[in-house]
Design a protein around this nucleic acid. Structure first.
Lengths: 203, 203
DNA sequence: ATAAAAAACCCCCTTTAGGGGATAGCAGTG
DNA sequence: CACTGCTATCCCCTAAAGGGGGTTTTTTAT
């Protein structure tokens, strides 16, 4: 019997999940938390095999929280359960140690299949996410650390000069990065750049 | 007994909701749809008293769908059930005919209270949304039709001149709108303008 | 009735962004 | 070893945005 813990602030969803998992016979829910902080306290007691983790938690990003849990409890398999179907979010989640990724409109069967798969040490992606990740590389936008940093500063309204001062680079360098970002994201100008960045959840 | 229909693409959530409502004794779920199109077909047969409606449907915006349903079936009370806690979304939903608004991290009791309230002809907002809507007017951002239109065109990357051509106005007028938008949203430049617009779901 | 708003328009001037290049070190990979 | 990607730098020039004013008409709400 696989022990499962759930962290999600959608209370109705967690109740539904609990019923679904407990009735499956293959796994049992040993704990539910509605925030990262309460989960942090209880996780040591629960010691679940699998943790179902949402990203939009009220007090923390599931992305950071995933990394944190994996460092403290490397044996716990993390199965992301979110509404996000953007490449950058999925990639970050997997990079941060998640063993699987489900989107919330997945079928109930996929949740159970995912729990089974990650408990067995495999990686599991639900159908829609699997299709997303298998798309040719060119359709995915992926930026370097510096580029993401730049993008954040641009979206915060800093000019090239201000960014240069802030991160101790030449304004001309910032200009180059900016041009490159426009190219990479296929944006005509800053307005579109910021829009795409937010749509793709790059910032 | 209040008859309830649910439209939401999160299958696990709808199952949980169904159990919750059916067990309450005060209402019964007579239909579930996972998309606007399937709901559109079934709604005439179901004739529910209350419709629980999500916004992030795969094939349509719940905002538009709400207006559509209200026009065709004015007697059906619509209770929004979404993840969005932005003023503009709540306001648009209520303007489009919704009788109530719940966010998905609300307590189970609030869902039942909401169903009861809207079935009785009252307006119902869950606790968090009630607080949000009661905040002083100045903290809410609300734009005119023209301003929203402008904002969309700016976020699509059009320059003042291009926008002017497109909507047959003087480029100087567009400039004025732009300056005004920066003021209203408290944005330093276009990058911040677009970011805030997307954060507040104004576009 | 009258006061807000929304909607539309105009001028001057400065700053910032964008389009077009080009160069070069340095890390990791086949 | 060549190649690719990331980092960082520089120049020229044009286009666009932003800051500071200002006016008028129409619509909408009280």
């Amino acid at each position: 019997m696989i022990s499962v813990a759930i962290v999600d602030d959608h209370k109705i969803l967690t109740e539904g999940l609990q019923g679904l998992i407990d009735e499956s016979g293959m796994a049992t829910v040993i704990g539910i938390a509605h925030s990262a902080s309460t989960c942090r306290i209880s996780l040591g007691f629960w010691k679940p095999d699998v943790l179902l983790l949402d990203i939009g938690l009220p007090d923390s990003s599931g992305l950071d929280f995933c990394k944190e849990i994996k460092q403290q409890y490397p044996q716990i398999k993390i199965l992301a359960l979110t509404t996000h179907n953007e490449y950058s979010i999925v990639k970050q989640m997997l990079d941060n140690g998640a063993s699987g990724y489900l989107i919330k409109n997945a079928m109930a069967e996929e949740v159970l299949a995912g729990i089974q798969a990650v408990a067995d040490g495999n990686t599991f992606l639900c159908h829609e996410i699997n299709l997303l990740m298998k798309r040719p590389k060119e359709t995915h936008i992926w930026l370097s650390q510096r580029e993401r940093e730049m993008l954040k500063l641009i979206a915060e309204g800093f000019t090239n000069g201000e960014i240069a001062d802030r991160i101790f680079l030449s304004p001309e360098t910032i200009k180059s990065y900016r041009k490159n970002l426009l190219l990479k994201l296929g944006a005509k100008n800053t307005a579109v750049l910021v829009r795409i960045a937010m749509e793709q959840k790059l910032i």
